[in-house]
Design a protein around this nucleic acid. Sequence first.
DNA 1: GGTAGACCTGGACGC
DNA 2: GCGTCCAGGTCTACC
Length: 294
Amino acid sequence: MPHLVVVARKPFSFYHTVRSHGWYQLSPCSWSESDGILDYTVHLESGKTVALRFGANPEGVDVHVHGRTSARDNEQISAITTWMFDLDASLAKFYAAVRDEPRLRHARRHGHGRILRSATIFEDVVKTILTTNTLWSATKRMCSSLVDLYGEPTRSDPRRIAFPTPERLAKVPVRRLQRDARLGYRAEYVHALSASVAAGRVDLEELKTNRSNTHELREKLLSLKGVGPYAAANLLLMLGRTDYLPIDSWARKLVSHEWHNGEPVGPAEVEAAFSRWGEWKGLVYWFWKWKDEA
DNA sequence: GGTAGACCTGGACGC
DNA sequence: GCGTCCAGGTCTACC
């Protein structure tokens, strides 16, 4: 079983990066709290599907690979690991910006600032669409259904399944996505996105290295059906762009209890609460220690 | 540009 | 167990 160590820029916390948001609960991720192990299955450019086991390492991330891989596969696995855990991220400016904020005193100590990603932007966009207008339990169910029904299993263990490729999902009729995966009206969005990516009309992976300003990137995300202001801001954060707030009902609830005595608030109040943090407001919101959890 | 209604599902609640 | 209501973002049609 090949074993890789992928080096992280310090400070880095494997645990807090995995737990940075709910992605670790979404298939094909599987997290063991007691062991501190994140299992993940991924489809490689070589056509192989491999099961990966991520764990903490003093230098960064330990990766155990189940299955035979070539040197080139291992290079891709290292790159995927670096991307998923944002190991190259430099957070010094963020820590400097929040140094005097009591509610973010924990940020540097915990290595906060990284947000767990999937191997591909396609997977993250689909998962984000599945978080909209629904309960978290339904998001988990829809995600598991997509993986179980249309994902690619590894050769050695049929229970280890990678997230379906755009090509695979593009071949599934919308009605089946609605009926079998029970995506509801989101089935149209997922199908259209998959078809566009599979046909080469939309290149999501280039967003990983896109140097455009955040506004242009946001416009590109908003052009995808099913991606609105909340989903775009969420995806921007995952892309390392921290100047938009993912304002959903949860954000409004937190801000309401933090600064408005539980009175209902709208997007304007959420914006106002974090506007002073400028380019960092997305990260500040994400890692803010709320009154209720203090 | 702003707003209302539809979209679909799961959970809570009342009967 | 069944029916009803509501919450959850985004899209489309309309003003």
